[in-house]
Design a protein around this nucleic acid. Structure first.
Lengths: 213, 213
DNA sequence: CGCATAATTGAGCGGTCTCAACGTATGTGG
DNA sequence: CCACATACGTTGAGACCGCTCAATTATGCG
């Protein structure tokens, strides 16, 4: 329960005191749980900087990482006034929070969120295709391409997720993810400088594997 | 290619002539493809009545039904100015279309879409959990509960999807879906009047199977 | 009635999971 | 500085769930 402890020790994770009109920015350490699935949904949040993952749990403990968020992405969504997902930082992050009521009062904010929701919904659609129809190797290839912006070709990508977190994102087990990394390495599509530092060697083959991501 | 033919014969599926300010309502037959993945995204659409499914394809033909839509739901989302999914009616449907530019000009519309996007995003999060972490039997149980509003307990649900469409939604094969239906029937959780008419017999057990949906 | 489409059921295969052992990196205290 | 502890990652062997392929049975329609 690393994240719980961190949340208590890392004092940055308090809701702002309320003096702000409707926005407040906070700086949060890595591996901190910002929101808990099921808690009353009072605020909506924007990632300014860093990476955040949203997770859902089944009663028996099975976990799914449902979304990976970066700068600009929005979280803290509610179903029946409760947060639908837990949110945990993957890296140190800067997060902007708004009271939910601000959505009605601030049309500029609403317009920004609308655009962002559309983008996130499209990403979720792609992810459904990945989870529903792709093999383990294809999923991992897709995952790596998704993290590697087209511009930075040949550069080294730092994964800020463990094999378990990647597995929970891709609907696999950590062993299967590890085997997929080894297979991609064996085929010469990627190079692993360390377990969490990847370089894509053959982007064409990766794209083909991932089904033109 | 049933849907292609239907689209051409069913004359209801033409874009409105442009005289409207930004909204137009059209009536569409069942099994008609309204949008094609990859086409230039000019309009955004709302389901007024009926059911619509959004699908994505892999180059080799594997298909995923990424979302099931009902009244109020929005589709026609774009990534890089192209539709991210194809959209096909499951039943006769009434659909409202808006030019994309209307989003900036009509704050009431934008506010409605924002609320709806939030709801749809939450549903997609649940669906990621289903696709990533649930067994075949659990997926089918979840699917049936999702279609059966809490109110109508004991009533008969008409499935307007084939086993193949359900399979493509749940990330399974049609045979596995069929076996899951048979297993639920064998366990006494559901009754199948016909292949496409289901009654949930034991809602408690279904909920437990579906992980408290 | 006969045909086409959809659904069910069975048998066997294979990809992913499970369980387990081993390897690697990082940090801590003696 | 090194021994150790801890967490994470890799690899292997076997089991199992869902897929593939195939045969059979509804269901609906001309």
């Amino acid at each position: 329960m690393r994240q719980i402890i961190d949340e208590r020790t890392g004092g940055t994770v308090r809701p702002p005191c309320g003096a702000e009109p409707h926005g407040a920015t906070m700086r949060i350490a890595a591996h901190v749980t910002v929101l808990h699935e099921g808690d009353p949904a009072r605020r909506i949040m924007e990632v300014v900087d860093g990476a955040v993952m949203l997770t859902k749990l089944l009663p028996d403990g099975r976990r799914q990482v449902v979304e990976l968020l970066g700068p600009g992405d929005v979280f803290g969504l509610a179903h029946a006034d409760a947060y639908a997902c837990s949110a945990e930082t993957l890296t140190p992050a800067t997060i902007n929070t708004h009271e939910r009521g601000a959505l009605e009062r601030d049309p500029v904010l609403a317009a920004r969120l609308l655009r962002r929701f559309e983008a996130q919904l499209c990403v979720m659609h792609s992810h459904a295709l990945v989870l529903g129809r792709m093999s383990a190797l294809e999923r991992v290839a897709f995952f790596l391409l998704r993290l590697m912006p087209d511009g930075m070709v040949g550069t080294t990508l730092h994964l800020s997720m463990t094999r378990q977190e990647i597995a929970d994102f891709l609907g696999l087990t950590l062993e299967t993810v590890s085997r997929a990394f080894s297979e991609l390495k064996r085929r010469g599509l990627v190079v692993l400088q360390r377990a969490d530092e990847v370089r894509i060697q053959d982007r064409g083959s990766m794209r083909r594997l991932a089904g033109a991501a």
